[in-house]
Amino acid sequence: MASKKIDLRYFPGFLPLTYLCLFLLYAPLIIVLVYSFNDSVSITKWGGLSLRWYSDVFFGPEAPKFQTAAFNSLTIAVIAATVSTTIATLAATAMIRAGNFKGRSFGFVLINLPIMVPEIVTAVATLIFFSAIGFTTGYLTILIAHIVFCIPFAYLPIAARMQSIDNTYEQAALDLYATKFEAFKLVLLPLMAPGILSGFLLAFIISLDDFIITNFVKGAGIETLPTAIFGSVKRGIQPNIMAISTLLLLVSVVFVTLSYLVGRAGEKSK
């Protein structure tokens, strides 16, 4: 039987579906990007290229609102990412470099708890908690909630990196009379730098991204960028939302690309 040799790795239809997948993922984003440059008051009609909605975002009537919201979002994301990355680095050191200790499995469950509990449930639980202890909702409650759910996202790349670094370097340092703290600070931490940076960047994006939990714990009178945008969109999509969305979209893409490149550089440097 002289049948032609078929490629076992190839299935007809898989390639078009892959392109469909890419199309579905990118089409909405590209459309918003294109329409953010639309010189028209209506979001539907195309009125030629213009930067008017970007200027509206920075200088228009809603500019102060969005600037305050952006300031809140950025400062919360920086602080939450810094704190959660620090906590995650310490936890990863214990989980991966401290052998088997009492409470290790519980610690593992606890660190991953924020990604196992559905966001809306975390939001409800946090709101109830702050209300029960009489804590006024505002900037601080948003910050605390963000630190909590950023920990597992910072932890994942940090733990992965630490697992891939052999502990012989630290052993060598200890043999040369370094204290454990010195081995940690002078040997492990520098080797961990790409993983820690990766974790920080992911935590930063996750914090910047959050809507549901922030919406529950923010209280009246304070907005982050997502809650401000959501409030605006509830009254209908305006063209300036397209511009803000595009800016935020670019921030995310830049940060993820950085995180990816840092991670890859880290892989190569090993």
Partner: peptide
């Protein structure tokens, strides 16, 4: 290995406190 075996609990403490206090207890309270 357990290079930092002696300090395991100190290293875990911040994550236990933060997640325990601000997520585990809130879920139980819910």
């Amino acid at each position: 290995s357990g290079i930092y075996a002696g300090s395991a609990h100190v290293l875990m403490l911040p994550s236990w406190l933060i997640i325990g206090f601000f997520l585990l207890i809130p879920v139980l309270l819910m």
